[in-house]
Protein backbone atom coordinates (compact mmCIF):
# COMPACT_ATOMS: atom_id res chain seq x y z
CA UNK A 1 0.00 0.00 0.00
CA UNK A 2 2.99 2.36 -0.46
CA UNK A 3 1.18 3.85 -3.42
CA UNK A 4 -1.47 5.26 -1.08
CA UNK A 5 1.24 7.12 0.84
CA UNK A 6 2.85 8.42 -2.31
CA UNK A 7 -0.42 9.49 -3.85
CA UNK A 8 -1.74 11.19 -0.75
CA UNK A 9 -0.53 14.75 -1.50
CA UNK A 10 -1.99 14.47 -5.01
CA UNK A 11 -5.24 13.14 -3.54
CA UNK A 12 -5.40 16.06 -1.10
CA UNK A 13 -4.68 18.62 -3.82
CA UNK A 14 -7.26 17.19 -6.21
CA UNK A 15 -9.82 17.07 -3.40
CA UNK A 16 -9.13 20.68 -2.48
CA UNK A 17 -9.38 21.91 -6.07
CA UNK A 18 -12.51 19.86 -6.64
CA UNK A 19 -14.08 21.18 -3.49
CA UNK A 20 -13.32 24.80 -4.33
CA UNK A 21 -14.60 24.46 -7.88
CA UNK A 22 -17.64 22.39 -7.18
CA UNK A 23 -19.23 23.51 -3.95
CA UNK A 24 -22.97 23.17 -4.14
CA UNK A 25 -24.95 26.36 -4.58
CA UNK A 26 -28.20 24.60 -3.68
CA UNK A 27 -29.70 23.85 -0.35
CA UNK A 28 -29.49 25.83 2.84
CA UNK A 29 -27.06 24.67 5.48
CA UNK A 30 -28.35 22.96 8.59
CA UNK A 31 -29.11 25.48 11.34
CA UNK A 32 -26.22 26.17 13.68
CA UNK A 33 -28.47 25.38 16.65
CA UNK A 34 -31.75 23.54 17.19
CA UNK A 35 -34.38 26.32 17.09
CA UNK A 36 -36.34 25.09 20.11
CA UNK A 37 -35.35 24.06 23.58
CA UNK A 38 -35.58 20.30 24.05
CA UNK A 39 -37.29 18.59 26.96
CA UNK A 40 -35.32 16.91 29.71
CA UNK A 41 -34.04 13.42 28.98
CA UNK A 42 -32.95 11.84 25.73
CA UNK A 43 -34.68 13.33 22.72
CA UNK A 44 -36.55 11.27 20.14
CA UNK A 45 -36.25 13.32 16.96
CA UNK A 46 -39.08 11.41 15.26
CA UNK A 47 -41.63 12.50 17.89
CA UNK A 48 -41.68 16.07 16.55
CA UNK A 49 -40.35 15.53 13.03
CA UNK A 50 -42.44 12.54 12.00
CA UNK A 51 -44.13 14.32 9.09
CA UNK A 52 -41.12 16.21 7.83
CA UNK A 53 -39.48 13.70 5.55
CA UNK A 54 -35.78 13.32 6.03
CA UNK A 55 -32.77 15.16 7.38
CA UNK A 56 -29.56 14.83 5.38
CA UNK A 57 -31.45 12.22 3.32
CA UNK A 58 -32.03 10.03 6.41
CA UNK A 59 -35.16 9.35 8.43
CA UNK A 60 -35.37 11.42 11.60
CA UNK A 61 -35.94 8.19 13.51
CA UNK A 62 -32.37 7.20 12.62
CA UNK A 63 -31.26 9.81 15.13
CA UNK A 64 -33.67 8.95 17.97
CA UNK A 65 -31.52 8.89 21.10
CA UNK A 66 -32.47 5.42 22.28
CA UNK A 67 -30.04 3.44 24.42
CA UNK A 68 -28.92 1.59 21.30
CA UNK A 69 -28.21 4.86 19.50
CA UNK A 70 -26.28 6.32 22.43
CA UNK A 71 -24.13 3.20 22.77
CA UNK A 72 -23.38 3.19 19.05
CA UNK A 73 -23.23 6.94 18.38
CA UNK A 74 -19.83 6.57 16.73
CA UNK A 75 -21.42 6.06 13.31
CA UNK A 76 -23.49 9.24 13.54
CA UNK A 77 -20.42 11.17 14.69
CA UNK A 78 -18.47 9.84 11.70
CA UNK A 79 -21.00 10.65 9.01
CA UNK A 80 -23.33 13.31 10.46
CA UNK A 81 -21.13 15.52 12.65
CA UNK A 82 -22.79 18.78 11.45
CA UNK A 83 -26.16 17.44 12.59
CA UNK A 84 -24.77 16.46 16.01
CA UNK A 85 -23.37 20.00 16.33
CA UNK A 86 -26.85 21.51 16.05
CA UNK A 87 -27.60 20.32 19.60
CA UNK A 88 -24.26 19.39 21.12
CA UNK A 89 -21.45 21.87 21.78
CA UNK A 90 -17.95 20.46 21.41
CA UNK A 91 -17.59 20.55 25.19
CA UNK A 92 -20.39 17.94 25.48
CA UNK A 93 -18.15 15.43 23.67
CA UNK A 94 -15.21 16.51 25.85
CA UNK A 95 -17.00 15.18 28.93
CA UNK A 96 -15.84 11.71 27.86
CA UNK A 97 -13.61 12.09 24.78
CA UNK A 98 -10.52 14.02 25.73
CA UNK A 99 -6.81 13.76 25.24
CA UNK A 100 -6.53 14.63 28.91
CA UNK A 101 -9.18 14.51 31.62
CA UNK A 102 -9.21 16.25 34.97
CA UNK A 103 -11.32 13.55 36.60
CA UNK A 104 -13.40 10.51 35.76
CA UNK A 105 -16.52 11.63 33.84
CA UNK A 106 -18.85 9.80 36.22
CA UNK A 107 -17.26 11.66 39.12
CA UNK A 108 -17.50 15.06 37.46
CA UNK A 109 -21.13 14.37 36.57
CA UNK A 110 -22.07 12.48 39.72
CA UNK A 111 -25.32 14.46 39.77
CA UNK A 112 -26.28 13.10 36.32
CA UNK A 113 -26.75 9.33 36.75
CA UNK A 114 -28.99 9.34 33.67
CA UNK A 115 -26.06 10.03 31.35
CA UNK A 116 -24.23 7.13 29.74
CA UNK A 117 -20.72 7.61 31.17
CA UNK A 118 -17.83 5.15 31.13
CA UNK A 119 -16.32 3.36 34.13
CA UNK A 120 -19.00 3.86 36.74
CA UNK A 121 -18.35 2.32 40.13
CA UNK A 122 -15.00 0.80 41.04
CA UNK A 123 -13.48 0.23 37.63
CA UNK A 124 -9.85 -0.30 38.58
CA UNK A 125 -10.60 -3.91 39.55
CA UNK A 126 -12.85 -4.52 36.56
CA UNK A 127 -10.41 -3.15 34.00
CA UNK A 128 -8.21 -6.19 34.54
CA UNK A 129 -11.08 -8.30 33.22
CA UNK A 130 -12.57 -6.02 30.56
CA UNK A 131 -9.13 -5.16 29.22
CA UNK A 132 -8.46 -8.81 28.45
CA UNK A 133 -11.92 -9.44 27.03
CA UNK A 134 -12.23 -6.38 24.76
CA UNK A 135 -8.93 -4.46 24.59
CA UNK A 136 -9.88 -2.45 21.49
CA UNK A 137 -12.52 -0.64 23.52
CA UNK A 138 -9.76 0.55 25.92
CA UNK A 139 -7.48 1.60 23.07
CA UNK A 140 -9.99 3.99 21.50
CA UNK A 141 -9.72 6.40 24.45
CA UNK A 142 -6.44 5.46 26.14
CA UNK A 143 -4.24 4.11 23.36
CA UNK A 144 -2.85 7.39 22.09
CA UNK A 145 -3.52 9.80 24.94
CA UNK A 146 -5.39 10.22 28.19
CA UNK A 147 -3.24 7.44 29.66
CA UNK A 148 -1.16 9.20 32.31
CA UNK A 149 -2.83 7.15 35.03
CA UNK A 150 -2.32 3.92 33.05
CA UNK A 151 1.42 4.64 33.04
CA UNK A 152 1.69 4.60 36.80
CA UNK A 153 1.42 0.78 36.64
CA UNK A 154 1.89 -0.13 32.95
CA UNK A 155 5.49 0.97 32.40
Amino acid sequence: MKWVTQLMPAFALVSLLTACAAISREGESLPAAHPEKLAQGRPLCSECHQDEGKVRFKEYASFDHTTGFVNGHRLAATTDAPLCAACHAASFCSDCHSKKTAMKPSLKLGNRPDRELPHRGEYLSLHRIDGKVDPASCYRCHGRGNNELCRTCHR
Binding site: H142, G143, G145, H154
Partner: peptide, 8 residues
Protein backbone atom coordinates in the same frame (compact mmCIF):
# COMPACT_ATOMS: atom_id res chain seq x y z
CA UNK B 1 0.59 3.84 16.81
CA UNK B 2 0.13 3.17 20.51
CA UNK B 3 1.72 5.71 22.84
CA UNK B 4 1.87 3.12 25.61
CA UNK B 5 3.18 -0.09 24.03
CA UNK B 6 3.76 -1.68 27.43
CA UNK B 7 -0.02 -1.87 27.66
CA UNK B 8 -1.18 -1.86 24.04
Amino acid sequence: ASSIPSLF
